Simulated assay, not measured.
Amino acid sequence: MRSLSALLLSLALCGTAQAAVTAEAETAFDNALRMADANQQRLEQLIDQEQQGHLDKQVLLDTMAVLTQSIQAYEAELRKASDGGHAVATYLLGNLQESRKHFAAKDATASHAQACALYQTATDQGLLAGAVTLLRECETASRRFKFDDPELLRLQRQLLKALQQPDAFADHYPLPALNSLCFKELKVPVINGERPLSTLADAYTPTVLDFDQFRADGYYLLAFKGEVDGEAARGYFKKVQALTPDCLDPMRLSGMYKATDSDAR
């Protein structure tokens, strides 16, 4: 019995050590956040100048050069934090990689694959946002109505598990989401030749979601990317409604369920 207790204790300690974020990782993450704030301010200044018609071409080139270097430093700090177990840093790295596919067509597939791998790591590190993003962005079987696809089923189970347990990084929400079924309108960007920066910022700026909004998005995904007319999907959609009155419901699940209920009476 004593040896069994010792084994369980050692396993618990190993699990705790694996989940812990190192002090170096926290420092690197804080550095990355400061860099992100500075980059955001530089970009907003450029957009303001563009909208006022005062954007100087040389200023644009100089600022973009500074931004490029700063983003590289930001990515390096995020990687340090991620390597130290910081799931939010891993998730933000995933967002960075996923964003690149819009601006580097030749490497879009590779960038997307790297982003999905990072989202999986963030999920493994205990972040709900990673599991939500994986199911939303990193599977294609549901688009082909292959609802018995093993990878789709794995991602669904993984997300449901994440929704049912505490998030070790709950204090870090709200977090940016590149897309959201519930909280970001789907639209194709139309580039304004006179204001390209403003157009791109409007199209690709992430929406910021709090913890419950990520949960709502997660349950909406489970309802939509499964047997949508089944009882489980209805249950997931009810959880969405309990979490928020503001889900955009782009797939019109509410209307479908109301119509079905009306026909059943």
Rank of each mutant, 00 (worst) to 15 (best):
G85H: 01
G85S: 04
G85Q: 04
H86E: 12
A87V: 00
V88M: 08
T90N: 09
Y91S: 00
L92K: 07
L92N: 05
L93D: 09
Q97T: 01
E98M: 14
S99M: 12
S99L: 12
S99Q: 15
K101L: 09
F103R: 00
F103T: 09
A104I: 06
A105I: 11
D107G: 05
A108M: 10
T109E: 09
T109C: 01
A110I: 07
A110V: 10
S111T: 06
S111H: 15
A115M: 07
C116E: 10
L118D: 12
L118F: 04
Y119W: 08
Y119N: 09
Y119T: 02
T121Y: 11
A122E: 04
T123V: 05
T123N: 08
T123E: 13
Q125T: 05
L127C: 03
L128F: 08
L128P: 10
A129K: 02
G130I: 02
T133N: 12
E137S: 14
C138E: 04
C138H: 09
E139G: 05
E139T: 15
S142N: 13
R143K: 14
R143G: 04
F145N: 12
F145E: 12
F147W: 14
F147G: 00
D148F: 02
D148Q: 13
D148I: 02
P150C: 03
P150L: 02
P150D: 08
P150M: 04
P150T: 00
E151F: 13
E151N: 11
L152K: 11
L152F: 10
R154F: 09
R154C: 00
R154H: 09
L155N: 03
L155Y: 14
L155C: 06
Q158Y: 01
Q158N: 06
K161M: 00
K161F: 00
Q164D: 14
Q164G: 15
P166E: 11
D167M: 03
D171S: 11
D171F: 01
H172A: 12
P174A: 10
L175T: 04
L175V: 04
P176Q: 00
N179Q: 13
N179M: 10
L181Q: 13
C182W: 03
F183Q: 01
F183W: 02
E185S: 11
E185T: 15
E185P: 03
E185M: 06
L186T: 14
L186Q: 14
K187Q: 14
K187E: 14
P189L: 03
V190N: 10
I191S: 01
I191V: 10
I191G: 02
I191H: 02
N192M: 04
E194H: 11
R195G: 07
L197G: 11
L197E: 06
L197R: 07
S198P: 00
D202Q: 15
A203R: 12
A203L: 04
T205W: 03
T205M: 00
P206A: 03
P206V: 14
P206F: 06
T207R: 12
V208F: 07
D210N: 15
D210M: 09
F211N: 03
D212V: 05
D212N: 15
Q213E: 13
Q213N: 07
A216K: 05
A216N: 08
A216M: 08
A216H: 01
D217R: 01
G218L: 11
G218W: 10
G218C: 05
L221Q: 14
